[in-house]
Design a protein around this nucleic acid. Structure first.
Length: 270
DNA sequence: AGGTCGACCTGGCAGC
DNA sequence: TGCTGCCAGGTCGACC
């Protein structure tokens, strides 16, 4: 899925394009992308609601509706929102007809993502177990240190654990560890104070840079206009197995951790 | 409580 | 050409 920078881009795009527009009609082409498969009530609740503002929590976009309620979008691996005309490509799952005659298309090839209508955010279970946002004050170096010291798992899967910090997924976890020269296999509890400090800074630096570049598109991710993200140009290790490290020319290797690919430079990340 | 693993899906691509 | 297996921006829940 989109990780934090891609979801943030979707949120900003929606804010620019559909703020103050009303949903005239909702069509659901596959029940599996509606949370609890409650398609009938989903359609009924959204019809006639107006998009008032937009926020983000972890990797979910939250559409604040008027007169009440929220549309939550969790795009997971391949979900995206396309604004404009009705798309012709495969994968259209939900279609919103808007009051200006345009459409919002929810496209999701793999059907992992979901949309949900909720009336009360504080009762939304999905958000209750999440750790802090990487740009929030409560994501402090002290908090981060405390979390890592309690974990025996490798630092790379720990970085992707949303109970510790949200928003860091498989691409940016590899990029952050390369940035600070830390081996992804290092046990979380054994990471030094200095490296924790550096990692804390790097998380914010890399995610911010990726937001500036409108995210990364390894394969499927697209923004609201169907464009790819620009962070690809800045990627150092992700997807580069067998190629040379830009810093030291050693080979970038791919390993598997927690059933996900990790890319790193064996020389720069000892 | 923390850690690990399978499950949820479709489709593109490499190799035979 | 067509089959097989592997790979993909993420969570969950069941188990140890």
């Amino acid at each position: 899925m989109p990780e934090l920078p891609e979801v943030e881009t979707i949120k900003r795009d929606l804010d620019q394009r559909v703020r103050n527009l009303t949903i005239e009609k909702v069509k659901v082409f596959d029940d599996r992308v509606i949370a609890d498969r409650s398609t009938r009530s989903f359609m009924a609740k959204l019809k006639g609601k107006t998009f008032q503002s937009f926020s983000r929590r972890a990797k979910c976009v939250i559409c604040h509706l008027s007169p009440k309620g929220y549309l939550i979008i969790q795009p997971k691996m391949t979900g995206h929102m396309l604004y404009g005309e009705i798309i012709q490509e495969a994968g259209l799952r939900v279609l919103f007809e808007l009051s200006n005659g345009k459409y919002l298309n929810y496209r999701d090839i793999r059907l992992f993502g979901w949309l949900s209508y909720v009336e009360d955010l504080s009762e939304f279970k999905h958000f209750q177990t999440l750790g802090p946002e990487p740009f929030d004050k409560d994501f402090s170096v002290e908090y981060f240190t405390d979390q890592l010291k309690r974990r025996t798992m490798a630092i790379k899967p720990a970085l992707m654990n949303p109970q510790i910090v949200v928003g860091v997924g498989n691409i940016y976890a590899s990029e952050i560890l390369y940035d600070i020269g830390l081996n992804p296999k290092t046990s979380a509890k054994k990471v030094t104070k200095k490296k924790i400090q550096e990692m804390h800074e790097s998380i914010q630096k890399i995610l911010k840079k990726a937001i500036d570049m409108r995210g990364s598109s390894m394969r499927d991710y697209r923004d609201a206009e169907g464009q790819k993200g620009g962070f690809m140009k800045l990627i150092q290790v992700y997807g580069r197995a067998g190629e040379k490290c830009y810093r030291c020319s050693a080979e970038i290797v791919r390993i598997v951790q927690a059933q996900r690919s990790t890319f790193y430079c064996k020389k720069c990340q000892r």
